[in-house]
Every structure is written in structure tokens, then in C-alpha cells.
Design a protein around this nucleic acid. Structure first.
Lengths: 245, 245
DNA sequence: TGTATAAGGTTGTCTATACAGTATAAGAGA
DNA sequence: TCTCTTATACTGTATAGACAACCTTATACA
């Protein structure tokens, strides 16, 4: 993980502005420093300031208007299909009994795939947990999760029968960004056994990455047997396809 | 739309490379010209070439390796999960060829299930279309859609080989509300035949209802073969408790 | 008062140059 | 043959300067 003092200048500028947005010092709609003002305050060249503001714009945080200035964009809250919810709370909210079995908990060395997932430069150790969540004794979710030790150093010391990994990470770190990829799969042998399902039962595979302060905190694959789970959402939109609610 | 001859230089370079990818002159994994080679051939400065290649990289088309070169990335076949996007646009954006086959187009009398879906009081006629969308000749989506004639009376007169139902409805009506339900399924006999897949291949089933001005405009079931497609989304979250457990 | 003009700030683009870090291939030496 | 060194190519970052286009505001003029 590159420490901030060693990061490129344009990254420092980006981080500074993002922190101001997150802290509330810069509200949606308010003006951010112009390129020339950043040149002054950071003692950088205009091209470097331009790069920082441009990248924040393509990432959706800012909006730029030629001849006028740069402004913090309105956050467009997305809705529920993929809200970050704790499955234990979901099950309890349905009035059912929640239990879980931790199948594995330990450290691994990042494989090339994991290095890419976590946006790492080189291989490091990652925390790894495999846990099966049960509703009234019936397995409903197979969770295979990797966690960045840099972001959550005390992860391994938690008791995950008392608190799900999702719940622990949510209380420990703010989530800035989410990525979801949903696929349909047939379960492999291990998943069949853990979920107590037949090899022919299709499953939803939900791969989720979470960012906090620019770092990938965790990457999880959640397997749901199709007969026991579906993803649902309903929400209002504006004319431009943005989601409100 | 800015004509290409009036576009900025870095846009010309980007367009040129994208065209080469689309035409097949640049295959996935093959090397694209280095910055210095672009400097030569386009008579531009290295910073301009750098910008073009960097932007194509953040857009997901290229991958860069310091000391080695820049390469065409594998296009990941996937659809937007939360946004209402036209699959034809998504396929074309990946640089692939989009085609479609209209399997059925006509009227039906609403069944009890459809009456409920469309929030109708009594049975009326509904428009019905079945269409298979193909990427490079390979079926990737089976679309089974019902449309409310009250909202889109001219639906049947459209040419759906030229424009997808989604595209037509989006340009005709504002979307106020969306409902999604995602499941994993095994395809039925008809879907197997239309999608040219085996009975054992799991599929994503995305059921979507769209509202406009309080009425259900359309109800669609979209089937994606798992091996060919995934659903994807990535977005920022606000710190104001949008992401709750 | 109303209108044109000028000035200054802002973003957008482009150039030429520089240095650092990384990967690969060629060559020298053991 | 094997290993170390060197040269070369490539990307990543940063600078200083330049011109264009755009917007707002102040100013001068009719």
C-alpha cells in the first residue's frame, strides 16, 4: 500500500479533495479550488492540478464548467438491489433464526487474481474467511471473503459466530464505493456440501468489492442457492436515469 | 456531435485505436502502438499520446505495463444491473457486433399473472415480443417482454431489428420507477433452443418492471446464459447512512 | 439608461522537455 | 554454459509555457 507521503502529487491532490468532500467541508454543489489556486497552495504545475481535477470528474465526484469553475457533484444514491446489508439482520428481520458456521479463518498470500482484485502492486498477505450462513438451520449463503490487513488489521481476532464479517467491517470502516458482479453458476463440490444442495441446482454468485478511502477493503464471493434466495429492488428514478430515494 | 476532423488530437487517437479494436485489426491481448510510436505516426507530443492511452485504460479497453507496453484488454460481457441500459449499446461499446432476431411479435390477452404484474383491474390485451440479442452472432440475451398498449400504442408498428424495445420505450416514455428481481435458473426447452445452450447451463433471470406516470409500462424477463454474460454495477455511496445494515 | 467593449478568471488542449522506475534483450566476462 | 552488466524501450510522473474558448464583471461610450 503506497503511503500518502510517497504518492504522486496528483494523487495527493485527489486525496485531499476527496477528504474534504467526505468530511463535509465541501458540500455538493460547492466550488472546489480552481487549477490555479491548487497550483498556488500545493506548489505544483497546472497540468498536475488539471489531472487531479479531471480524474475526479471522470470518477463522478466533480463536474467542471469551462469558464466558470469546478464543483462537487450531487451524490446519486443507488438503491437497494445491492445494498450492503448484514444477512444476519435480514434473517432476524424475517422472524427467523440465524446461525452460522465458520469453515475457515486464516491468512493467505495474494494470488495474481487477488492482486488485481485488491489493486495491489505486489503480492502481500490477505485475510481469508469462509463462512456459511443459515436461516432456521438451512444454509442460505456461502461466503468466501478476503480482507485487506492494511485496512482491518484486527480482523482475525474477531468472533465471527457473534458478528458477521460484513457487520464487523461496516462498524470499523466507512464504505465509499461498491462494485457488484452477479453471475449464475452451478455449485462446485465444496459449495454443494456446505450449502447442502444438489449439483444441478443453479446458484446466484454475487461478487462484491468494497472501497474505503481509495483502498479495496474486502472482496467477497457470496453464493446463494436459487431456490432459497433472489435479489430484489424497487426504486424511483429521474428522467436522466438517476436513482433517487 | 463534434465531427472527428474538429475533435481534439487525443480524441482522434482514441477513436483510431477503438476503431482498430472494433475492426479486429487489434485483437484482445495484442500490443497497441507505444506512446513514442504514436508520437511519430500522428505527429503529436508524447503527453497527448499518453492521455489517449491512459483514458482508454481507465475506460477498460487497454491495460498498460510499465517497461513492457500497452495491450488490448479482454472485453468483459456484462450488463448494467441498476441502470436501464440498452443491450445493443453495451455490446457496441465493447467493440462487438450486435444483431437480434425477433422470434415473436403480437397481442395477447392478459393472464392472471400478467394482470397482477401490470396492476390491471381486469383482463385486457397486451403487446408481447420475444427477441434474442446476439453478440458477434452468439445469443447472449433472451428477452420476453409484455407492453401496456395504453402507454405505448404504437409499439407493434416499430422495427425491432433496427431498435431494441428498450431503446424505443426509453425514447417514448419517461421512466419513473423500476423494479428488479434477479434469480438463477436453468433454462426451459424454448430458452435452450433460442439461446443455443445446454439444459445444464445456469442462467441469470432478470425480471424488470418499469413505471411511467403511475402505470406499469412494461414487464420483461431477460435471460442471460451464465457463461456469456454477467450483471455489473459500481457506484459511490454516501456517508449519510444510505448504506445501512 | 442601455449597450458595446475590455479585462480577468476559468477550463480545455497541446507542446517540449525531463527524470525515474521497470522490463527485456544483447553483450561481456567468468 | 551461466551470470552479471549494459543498453534500450516503455510507461509514470512532473514541469513550464502557450493559445483557445468560455463566462462573468467592470468599464467606457452612445
Amino acid at each position: 500500500m503506497t503511503p500518502l507521503y510517497a504518492a504522486p502529487l496528483y494523487v495527493k491532490v485527489k486525496t485531499h479533495i476527496l477528504e474534504q468532500i467526505r468530511s463535509g467541508a465541501l458540500q455538493a454543489g460547492s466550488r472546489v479550488p480552481s487549477e490555479n489556486e491548487l497550483v498556488e497552495s500545493f506548489k505544483i504545475s497546472r497540468m498536475t492540478a488539471n489531472r487531479a481535477l479531471n480524474e475526479l470528474t471522470t470518477e463522478g465526484h466533480l463536474a467542471r464548467v469551462p469558464g466558470v469553475g469546478t464543483f462537487v457533484k450531487e451524490a446519486t444514491p443507488r438503491s437497494s438491489l445491492l445494498e450492503l446489508r448484514n444477512i444476519a439482520d435480514e434473517i432476524i428481520a424475517r422472524g427467523h433464526k440465524y446461525t452460522s458456521r465458520v469453515e475457515h479463518l486464516g491468512e493467505v498470500v495474494a494470488t495474481p487474481n487477488l492482486i488485481e482484485d485488491f489493486e495491489l502492486k505486489s503480492s502481500t498477505k490477505l485475510f481469508h474467511i469462509v463462512i456459511v450462513h443459515e436461516e432456521n438451520g438451512m444454509p442460505v449463503q456461502f461466503e468466501d471473503r478476503y480482507v485487506n490487513p492494511f485496512c482491518a488489521p484486527n480482523f482475525l481476532k474477531q468472533d465471527f459466530t457473534a458478528q458477521t464479517p460484513t457487520a464487523y467491517l461496516l462498524t470499523t470502516l466507512p464504505v465509499d464505493e461498491l462494485e457488484h458482479n452477479v453471475e449464475a453458476i452451478l455449485p462446485d463440490a465444496n459449495q454443494q456440501r456446505r450449502l447442502k444442495i444438489a449439483a444441478t441446482e443453479p446458484c446466484l454468485s454475487l461478487h462484491r468489492r468494497s472501497w474505503s478511502k481509495g483502498h479495496v477493503v474486502t472482496s467477497a464471493t457470496l453464493i446463494y442457492p436459487a431456490s432459497r434466495y433472489a435479489l430484489y429492488s424497487r426504486y424511483h428514478t429521474t428522467s436522466k436515469g438517476q436513482v433517487t430515494q
